[in-house]
Amino acid sequence: MRKQSKWMLLLGLAGVLTLSACNTSGGADNKASGGNGAESFGKQVKHEIIGIDPGAGIMKATSKAIEEYGLSDWKLVEGSSAAMTATLAKDIKAKKPVVITGWTPHWMFSKYDLKYLDDPKKVYGEAEEIHTIARQGLKDDEPTAYQFLDRFEWTSDEMGEIMTAIEEGAKPEDAAKKWADDHPDRVNEWIKDLKPVNGKPLKLSYVAWDSEIASTNLLQYVLQDKLGYKVTALQVEAGPMWTGVANGDVDASAAAWLPLTHADYMEKYKDKVDDLGPNMTGVKTGLVVPSYVDINSIEDLKK
């Protein structure tokens, strides 16, 4: 009986040691696959950075970042702003890691807890600005519109009110009207002492980003309802937006991201457009992840 008890005790100790060894091994495996290591994080997101339309400046900057940071095993996925935010929403709901091309102002920063990855090489540059550009001759042809566009400037928080309303289901034109009606002092700053016209046509162009949809709908509302213009707003890609203003086919655009995002277009058309200066400052672009993701720099994406 004593021998049997001794034998059972030895078996019990062996089992404990075996379980302990298994748990130690399992813990290490979990740590490797749980996002604590950069290589593990890359595998979890299939080494994909979710981008937007291929012609956007942020896509060019991201391609450069992949090269500069030695991310040869990473792929930049082309798509659209809507597709990018849909992927972000899906992965955040599932508490999964994801890397996207991001910019502020954007409603997603109000809705989700996000963070920019540090960019020590400054591939994305410093903070950007959104400028208003006009066709040459607009100042003489339509001084009322020109002066309004020249005065127009606002903050990312103000823009965020319209973007959030649109994201929550409001029509862009309704969200813009409500903002203008709710902020009469701001609108009056822009149109003070300007003489309204009587139905003169005016063309604006913009890229299909949430920020530009918000600003262009606001401009269209003020120009039409406060200053008497008949406004056509054209949604185009960045190239046609700049080309249209440079050729005089479009009167103005409040969607020029400078000095980085639209740098190529500014270099090409700087002598053919009037730069009215920034309508918003402190704009930022870069790679964005949910705050629960345990990486903080673009360098962390490298194995």
Rank of each mutant, 00 (worst) to 15 (best):
F152T: 09
S205E: 11
I133N: 04
E142S: 10
P120R: 05
K139T: 01
L117P: 04
P201E: 12
D182G: 03
A176K: 02
D150G: 04
E153P: 00
E128N: 14
V187P: 00
A208R: 04
E142M: 12
D141L: 08
E167A: 12
V187N: 04
D193I: 12
E189V: 13
P184W: 11
L114A: 02
T155A: 02
M159R: 10
E158M: 12
L149H: 11
A180K: 01
K178I: 06
W179L: 09
Y146P: 03
P184C: 08
I133C: 04
M163R: 03
D157L: 13
E128P: 01
L149D: 09
P143G: 08
D150Q: 15
T132D: 02
W154F: 14
R186V: 12
E153S: 15
I133E: 05
Q147A: 01
Y146I: 04
H131R: 05
R151I: 00
V207L: 13
F148Y: 15
E212F: 15
D174V: 08
E167M: 12
I162M: 11
A134L: 06
P184F: 07
D118W: 05
V187G: 02
Y206P: 02
T164N: 01
W190N: 10
D119W: 11
A145P: 11
H131W: 10
P196C: 07
T216N: 13
V197Q: 14
V197K: 14
A165N: 01
R151V: 00
K178V: 06
A175E: 01
M163P: 02
G137F: 04
L138G: 08
E167C: 00
D181G: 12
A175C: 10
K115E: 09
D174W: 00
A127M: 08
V197D: 12
D182R: 03
D118C: 04
A165S: 14
D185P: 00
G160K: 01
L194G: 04
A214V: 10
L202W: 00
D193A: 10
K203L: 04
I130S: 06
E173G: 09
L202V: 03
L202N: 09
D157S: 14
L149F: 08
L117W: 03
E212S: 15
P143E: 10
L138H: 09
L194P: 10
K171T: 07
L194Q: 08
M159V: 11
K192N: 12
